[in-house]
């Protein structure tokens, strides 16, 4: 047995994912990050919403919670504030995190609550059969954009930086070693972190857009991603349809929310109460 398999709950297999889906790579990357950090499964909780990504917690041999569509972060906020000592991981898809759950996402980032978010971006609603998502590229054909998508997409990593997230990274399922490494780094970060993992849905997005197998689709992903260093050297024209990967934001100056509450608000309130009693 490999070391990371301690964190895999084989009793709940098989997964509901299609053959070749990038979700399996993300699952293994997270388990390997747990393993590298030698974490006690009882000190970890993995929470997710609805969709293909929503099913992922079931397969971790840690505390796991499968919640409602888009709202995993809200449950995670309750857990983290109650148990600041635990590693709270949220797994989300692009529809889950940025459509129905967009409000919770920006507020969790703003609070800088120590939740570790893995945002799997496959650009489509996979579980429901391939409808347009807030991250579907323009002109793409989906089940609900049969004549091509006319909506511009979010750039989630940049959106998270604007929402004041203190750790933001982007990786792809092609770059498995780097993906595992940024996930590990995000777990070590104190505040809110988000790792955008660009993934392939060749079944529900690729098939309708001339990328019917995982090879074609991951190749397309590779063509559109460059390292942060490469990106910085590029001209504006060259940057069109290119996305930098790696750690895009890391700020350790801001307090994590639950720490701020328990180490600053609680003592301040107790002190104020004492003074009030003396009067």
């Amino acid at each position: 047995m490999n070391k990371y398999e301690k964190y895999i709950r084989y009793q709940t297999f098989p997964t509901p994912w299609c053959p070749g889906c990038g979700d399996g790579i993300v699952l293994k990357s997270i388990a390997m990050a747990f393993s590298d950090l030698n974490l006690d499964p009882n000190d970890i909780i993995v929470i997710a919403g609805i969709g293909c990504s929503g099913r992922m917690p079931t397969f971790f041999n840690t505390n796991t919670l499968h919640t409602t569509h888009g709202r995993a972060l809200t449950f995670a906020t309750g857990v983290k504030l109650s148990r600041p000592d635990k590693l709270v991981v949220v797994i989300s898809g692009d529809g889950d995190a940025l459509a129905i759950g967009g409000n919770h996402l920006i507020h969790a980032a703003r609070r800088n609550i120590g939740i570790k978010m893995i945002l799997i971006n496959n650009g489509v609603y996979g579980m429901t059969g391939g409808q347009v998502s807030p991250l579907t590229p323009q002109k793409f054909i989906t089940e609900t954009t049969p004549y091509g998508n006319i909506e511009p997409k979010f750039h989630p990593a940049e959106l998270m930086i604007a929402a004041r997230a203190t750790f933001v990274a982007r990786e792809t399922v092609n770059r498995t070693v780097q993906l595992k490494e940024v996930i590990k780094k995000s777990f070590q970060h104190k505040g809110f972190s988000v790792v955008e993992a660009i993934s392939n849905c060749h079944i529900n997005l690729g098939r309708k857009n001339k990328m019917k197998n995982p090879v074609k689709m991951t190749k397309w992903i590779a063509e559109r991603t460059v390292t942060k260093a490469q990106y910085e050297k590029m001209t504006t024209e060259e940057r069109a349809h290119k996305y930098p990967v790696g750690i895009l934001e890391e700020n350790t100056d801001r307090y994590e929310y639950s720490e701020l509450y328990h180490k600053h608000i609680v003592p301040a309130a107790k002190e104020a109460a004492k003074k009030n009693n003396k009067k």
Partner: peptide, 16 residues
Amino acid sequence: EDEISALGACIGASLS
């Protein structure tokens, strides 16, 4: 940020 998240946080805390 809203009532949906309020009850979500309550559930997370109750489970903790």
